[in-house]
Nucleic acid binder design. Structure first.
Lengths: 138, 138
DNA sequence: TCTTGACTTAGACAGAGTCCAATGTAGGAT
DNA sequence: ATCCTACATTGGACTCTGTCTAAGTCAAGA
């Protein structure tokens, strides 16, 4: 994720300790933390970091296209650092676990033009729902 | 929507004035109101209706499968009375307008089994995003 | 019409997120 | 190396969405 920090510095981002730890927390695959989870994990590394800064930083990362916002339920938004590989999400209806998945085909093409109501359709968010192996076993 | 009320009465629902006006507000196509919008419109018909009752009634309608909960952004949930015809949503990224749409094909089948991580996949929610004709013109 | 358990109400509360004025600091300028 | 200052951070108040509770009300069966 340090290449991310370099990229952002190149765009004029000031590199602060707070931004570093937020970026560090978001490193990894299948990471989908809420803002509060990011704050808790960041506070383990930098105890005095504030909630406001975590929200600010996440918002900036989203605006810059480096992180995706995901809402799979009506609760807190989740933040997905896997923004540079198009993907969708598979969510366990019981425990809420989220996996990144890669459906086949062109999903936007599934929408016939007579169903587009004159919209310029540019993107599609897909959430597959089901029961994960752990919940199915329990 | 009065067939809805009949159906619910058959299931033991007590028919109150409050439930009637909530059902009436939710009548129509491409209806996707937030709970507060439902409350405001219901209060036009029955001024003393409370927010709690609107939330209760919407929750019950969702549990009974008569209304769908939709969240297209991280904000308030929206309530969609078109629960008896499978459909997905098309959302304007600028103004938030929502249309019900009917994509072609079996959307769950788009997820290859090696991308299912052992989940039993049972449903899929799809949100197409784009710019609506009004916003494109403006 | 009476009765009763289901329904409604107002308001307190909780969770998620935003905003603001005061303070601190990264990094270019000197 | 130090200074400056525009940008970043902070804590706390605030907003919005939704839930809960205790007390009062009422639909509909007896």
């Amino acid at each position: 994720m340090s290449d991310l920090l370099e990229r952002l510095r190149g765009r004029g981002w000031r590199l602060t300790a707070q931004r570093r730890v937020v970026a560090e927390v978001l490193d990894g695959d299948h990471v989908h933390y809420t803002a509060d989870e990011v704050h808790a994990k960041a506070a383990d590394l930098l105890p005095e970091i504030s909630r406001a800064t975590v929200y600010n930083t996440l918002g900036e990362l989203v605006s810059l296209g480096e992180v995706l916002e995901v809402c799979t339920d009506g609760r807190a938004k989740r933040y997905d650092p896997n923004a540079h590989h198009a993907h969708q999400h598979l969510v366990c209806s019981r425990c809420g676990t989220i996996r990144d998945v890669h459906p086949a085909g062109d999903l936007v093409a599934n929408l016939p033009s007579e169903e587009r109501f004159g919209f310029q359709v540019s993107a599609v968010d897909v959430t597959f729902r089901g029961i994960c192996p752990d919940c199915a076993a329990a």
